[in-house]
Design a protein around this nucleic acid. Structure first.
Length: 469
RNA sequence: GGUGGGAUGGCGAAGUGGUAACGCAGCGGUCUGCAAAACCGUUAUGCGCGGGUUCGAAUCCCGCUCCCACCUCCA
């Protein structure tokens, strides 16, 4: 598999440090609010990469943090009149509801900053001992960027360039404008912990350095996040980690592109964002996930209702193919596959599994992988019809399950049949009787009635088939 | 000012040297009692513009135009 490594800005063959095992850290949300659809893209991309690596046979250890203390959390908690921990707890609960809807699996560890204060202090002390930290009284402990000759290697810029375009407020007391806080001293009655430098709380970047190391070791195989985290967040993580461990923080840096609205980046500060929760009122998590994977992860992706609606139609095509196969499996008169069917199946599996893997191996080309699923659907629709054996239909379904599962899609369509309630069963039977009596007006009336109840009927050569709208 | 990314049919989106995937939308047809679903056909002689290299370029080179992101919190 090849992945685009943002550290080298090239496509590189991916191999983990320890054969067969992958350590993977994704920068998780700051839990001061519900996540928006842009956050969702990062979650889905990281989750999909994780699933694919597992599919390839790697044992993946996936860690994603919660940033549960920062300015925004403190401000929000005050507005609401609750504690920071309480707010964070609430938002973490909300987070899991949203992530679950998207089919994003739980990380192996979801560490929280406030549970790792001693390790953070220890790390800052280590930096200080190495001459990478200094105190600004009344302000905080700062990182000394000029002490790191390769500072800027991830974002591909040097201190002179950074300084030239700096929009950051330059504190008169900072040695360099790019120096950043490792520890912020307590102001007023802000939440704070004791430290050798005084009461305060961690700076933004230090948490990831510390928690990634705590759970995954000095060097991660993959560190992911949104591309807007490249600078300063990930640059600063590297700056903090590498002097202490003496090792590269991560071997592969993977960043997803931004979601856009009207061509410009979606962001909380701009206000042009949609909460995932609200989007999920209109579209299923699967539709959202499918849309988020419909473009390559490193490209910007426009978010609009029309585009998502079109994706929903496309996904329905895959669902229909699955429903067709399930109906065939259910109604098949023959259990065992014929020789001819076995050949067909072997051909389908060989071709589509390979094409799918080639797509995913090429820097996680999920758009192409989806196209493979569409082609598979067409092939199944064309070549597996009435008269097919149950074995053939079920094996084709297994292929959908395998490939769809890597993308985190099609789970519900493939799931065991929920039973219809008796009233609906009765209406379907009534309509069948009406059709048999060639009372089509009555049959159509019942079909419309069921349609209004969210049940779509389709008459096939092997009997009536229903699906949910 | 610096650093990157991008412009592909009506819409979205793959494709980085061999003659334009895939999805949506549209149109025509087959099937159907009618539908739905599905299938078949059809919709870019051309991939921002102008040059160049090559037997051959959306893909490489040069120039130009426009757009976006990052350099501040952001996924």
């Amino acid at each position: 598999m090849r992945l685009h490594n943002d550290l080298t800005r090239t496509l590189e063959p991916f191999t983990p440090l320890v054969p067969g095992r992958v350590t993977f850290y994704n920068c998780g949300p700051t839990v001061y609010d519900r996540i928006h659809i842009g956050n969702a893209r990062n979650l889905v991309v990281a989750d999909t990469l994780r699933r694919y690596l597992r599919y390839k046979g790697y044992q993946v250890t996936f860690v994603q943090n919660f940033t549960d203390v920062d300015d925004k959390i403190i401000r929000r908690a005050r507005q609401l009149g609750i504690g920071e921990r309480e707010l964070a707890d609430q938002m973490i609960t909300e987070y899991f509801q949203d992530a679950d809807a998207l089919g994003v699996e739980r990380a192996d560890v979801h560490p929280r900053v406030t549970d790792h204060i001693p390790e953070i202090i220890e790390h800052i002390a280590a930096l200080e001992a190495l001459g990478f930290a200094y105190v600004i009284p009344g302000d905080g402990v700062y990182y000394r960027v000029t002490r790191k000759p390769d500072y800027g290697k991830l974002s591909n810029r040097n201190l002179a360039e950074l300084q030239a375009g700096a929009r950051v407020e330059v504190s008169a007391q900072k040695e360099h404008p790019m120096d950043f806080a490792l520890w912020k001293f307590q102001k007023e009655d802000e939440i704070a912990w004791d430290s050798p430098w005084g009461k305060g709380r961690p700076g933004w970047h230090i948490e990831c350095s510390v928690m990634a190391r705590r759970y995954l070791g000095d060097t991660l195989d993959i560190h992911a996040g949104g591309e807007d985290l490249i600078f300063p967040h990930h640059e600063n993580e590297i700056a903090q980690s590498e002097p202490v461990t003496g090792r590269p923080l991560a071997r592969f840096w993977i960043h997803n592109g931004m979601l856009t609205v009207g061509g410009t980046k979606m962001s909380k500060s701009e206000g042009n964002f949609w909460y995932l929760r609200d989007v999920l009122q209109r579209y299923s998590g699967e539709v959202v996930r499918f849309y988020l994977l419909s473009a390559h992860y490193r490209k910007p992706l426009e978010w609009s209702d029309d585009l998502v609606a079109a994706a929903k139609s496309g996904l329905e095509r895959l669902h229909n193919a699955v429903h067709n196969l399930r109906h065939l499996a259910r109604t098949a008169e023959r259990a065992e596959a014929s020789d001819q069917e076995r050949d067909l199946l072997a051909d389908l599996i060989a071709r589509f599994r390979q094409r799918f893997q080639e797509a995913m191996d090429d820097d996680l080309n999920t758009a192409l992988a989806q196209a493979v699923l569409f082609d598979l659907a067409t092939e199944c629709n064309r070549r597996i019809g009435p008269g097919a054996s149950r074995a053939l239909a079920e094996e084709a379904l297994a292929l959908f399950r395998e490939l769809g599962g890597v993308l985190g899609l099609l789970g519900s369509a493939l799931a065991e049949e929920e039973s219809l309630d008796a009233e609906i069963e009765r209406l379907i039977a009534l309509r069948q009787a009406a059709r048999k009596a060639r009372n089509f007006a009555e049959a159509d009336r019942i079909r419309d009635q069921l349609r209004a109840m969210g049940i779509i009927l389709e008459d096939t050569p092997t009997g009536v088939r229903w699906r949910r709208a």
